[in-house]
Amino acid sequence: MSKIFDIAIIGSGIAGAGLAAMIGDQATTLLLEAEATPGYHATGRSAAFWSETYGGPAIQPLTSASGPRLKAGGFLFPRGIAHVADQDGLDALKKFQESFAGTPVVLTPLDRAAIEATGARLKAGWDHGLSEASCEDIDVAALHAHFLSVAKKTGTELHTHNRVTALTRKEGYWFIETTRGSFKAARVVNAAGAWASEIAKLAGALPVVITPYRRTMIQLQVSPTPPAAMPIIIDALTRFYFKPEAGNRFWLSPHDEHPQPPADVAPEEMDVAIAIDRFQQAADWKIEKVERTWAGLRSFSPDRAPIYGADPKAEGFFWCAGQGGFGIQTSSAGSMLAACLLLEQALPDWLKDVDPERYSPKRFQV
């Protein structure tokens, strides 16, 4: 424990890696990862798209601010979304559109002919939609690798296989015990994703409940081959979404949310069956093969908005958690916001539409 770090970040997924990159050489930074590989749980299992509507109006400012930076970095590629509704989903589609009134998000109505023109083979009754043309695919692996590379080049030390087991504050420093050693830092950042509540408890911080939810993904081979430029199709009632992948493949999800303790998760057979049934009820593609299935955790705070800021209870403890499934698409803005708050710097002009108080842990004080 000879070296004393300015900042120790717990978790090297997109939140921890992005924050370390934004801190750069402005502080000596330690990045602690419990697994053998950074980004093993949520980051590595993302559905990989950037959407200004995904997560709702509370997330939109972070997403919109991140978009130009992700695009400039070469991490975004045109895709688009068609939010579609059958008769049961008309009210949900209307409320969805109304929720983004007054924001920069552009949603264009789609009739049956316009839906068909996207290449989406939807069955009769799916006659209404909204186009979100700004949606883009994200190269998640390249983005995460970029953050880790920048962090490394500017001096961040990454230690994998180091699950944090104890946090003790004394004499103005955090003494950090892990499964492989001991570390010392002036400040600790909780970027532990699904394990964020456990880390907060170790530190004696605010008892904010970060709930991990399992989401199922399926890779299908279908016929005929969908158009390569076809948009993502999302049901207004959030019963399913699917997006084209290479060749004749779709990624399909039943849009499920199953709360569970943090763990290395796998899909349940019932959720896979539900997703396939919903797809077959709505879409007119033949499923040739289920190639693979997987699941990931999306971790939410009680109000489903991320938490960035200093903990009001535990000195030197900082939150960078609760990003749900939106941490990748908001990573540029979220990481910069967290870095500015942590380093006590003014926000750059490109974050002028982001309100730091909206994401402060202080909102959970009793």
Rank of each mutant, 00 (worst) to 15 (best):
I14S: 03
I23N: 01
I23M: 01
T37F: 10
R45K: 15
R45Y: 04
S46G: 05
T53A: 13
Y54A: 10
I59N: 01
Q60R: 05
P61V: 13
T63V: 14
A65M: 01
G67Y: 10
D86A: 08
D88G: 11
D91H: 06
K95D: 10
F96S: 07
P104Y: 01
V106L: 09
R112L: 08
K123P: 09
A124S: 15
G125V: 11
S131D: 12
D137W: 00
D137K: 07
V150W: 02
H159E: 09
V164S: 04
T165G: 06
W174A: 09
W174H: 08
A200C: 04
A203P: 01
G204N: 07
P207D: 13
P207F: 06
P207L: 04
V208N: 01
V208W: 00
V208E: 02
V209T: 13
Y213M: 06
I218P: 02
I218F: 01
V222N: 08
P226V: 08
M230V: 13
I234R: 14
D235P: 11
A236F: 10
T238Y: 14
F242P: 14
E245P: 09
W251L: 15
A266I: 01
V272N: 00
V272S: 00
A273S: 12
I274D: 01
D284Q: 11
E288N: 09
E288G: 01
K289Y: 00
E291Y: 03
R292K: 15
R292T: 13
T293D: 00
L297W: 03
L297D: 06
R298Q: 13
F300K: 12
S301H: 04
A305I: 03
I307Q: 03
D311G: 04
P312R: 04
E315C: 03
F318G: 06
W319Y: 08
G324H: 07
G325N: 03
G325F: 11
M336L: 11
W350K: 12
W350L: 09
D353T: 15
K362V: 05
R363A: 07
